[in-house]
Amino acid sequence: MKKLSMVAAVLLASSVSACVTINIYFPAAAAEKAADKIIDEVWQLQNQGGAPAPAKPNEQK
């Protein structure tokens, strides 16, 4: 039981520290995905089902 709680503590500590690293960790995969999406739109690379995705601008002012 004691051993178990040790394991728990270690796991907890590791997951807590993992959580801490998340905050400064750059989401490379998501960034790449976002970049690809934007580049596809800007360069109009993929067929986007007709017209390029209209960015819905809110009513000006």
Partner: peptide, 9 residues
């Protein structure tokens, strides 16, 4: 977090 998309809209 890893799976989340970046806000680009």
């Amino acid at each position: 977090f890893a799976a989340a998309d970046l806000e680009i809209n």
